[in-house]
Computed example of a mutant assay.
Amino acid sequence: MRNLKLIWDFKGPEAERTAAHHLIHLDDYLKNEKVTSIATGVEQVSDNHHIAYVALKETFMPSVRDALKPHRGQLWNDL
């Protein structure tokens, strides 16, 4: 079973704050829907581009994708 990283992109001068706020909602959703995540967080891509993400097992991906509409996804490499 693969691990996936679902990503929400935020750009602009408020990108870091917006991504951090979005992460609160992601964590709430995971808790309320009893979805086990591998990791969640915020990462800086550039000065004006931050992401919020959730890493999870592939079996959880369809329901989370359909409910939360991530902008993109990739394989999760936790090394």
Rank of each mutant, 00 (worst) to 15 (best):
G41A: 12
L6V: 06
L30I: 03
A19F: 05
Y53K: 12
G41K: 08
A39C: 08
K31M: 12
P13Y: 00
V42G: 06
P13S: 03
D9N: 15
L23I: 03
K31Y: 09
D47W: 00
S46A: 12
V45R: 01
S46R: 04
V35Y: 07
W76E: 04
H71S: 10
L79N: 09
N3G: 06
Q74C: 09
A15L: 01
I38P: 04
K5M: 08
K11Y: 09
L30Y: 03
D27P: 04
K31L: 13
I7G: 05
R17G: 14
Y53G: 07
A19R: 00
R65T: 10
G73D: 04
N32Q: 13
V42C: 10
A55G: 14
K57P: 01
K34F: 07
K11C: 13
V35R: 05
Y29W: 10
Q74Y: 04
A20I: 02
S37E: 11
H22Y: 14
I38L: 15
V35M: 08
N77Q: 14
F10S: 02
E43Q: 12
D9A: 05
E58K: 15
A67S: 15
G73N: 04
N77H: 13
I51C: 00
L6T: 03
D47V: 00
K69A: 11
H25M: 11
N3V: 06
K11P: 08
R72A: 10
N32S: 11
H71A: 09
F60L: 14
H22M: 08
I24G: 06
N32H: 10
L75D: 06
V35A: 07
R65D: 13
A15N: 02
L56Q: 05
W8Y: 11
V35S: 05
H21F: 13
Q44M: 14
A20W: 01
R17C: 03
D66L: 15
N77D: 13
R2T: 09
T59V: 15
I38F: 03
A52N: 02
E33N: 10
D9F: 06
T59E: 15
W76P: 01
Y53Q: 12
A19I: 05
F60V: 07
L56H: 07
N77E: 14
L26Y: 03
A19N: 05
M61Q: 13
I7D: 05
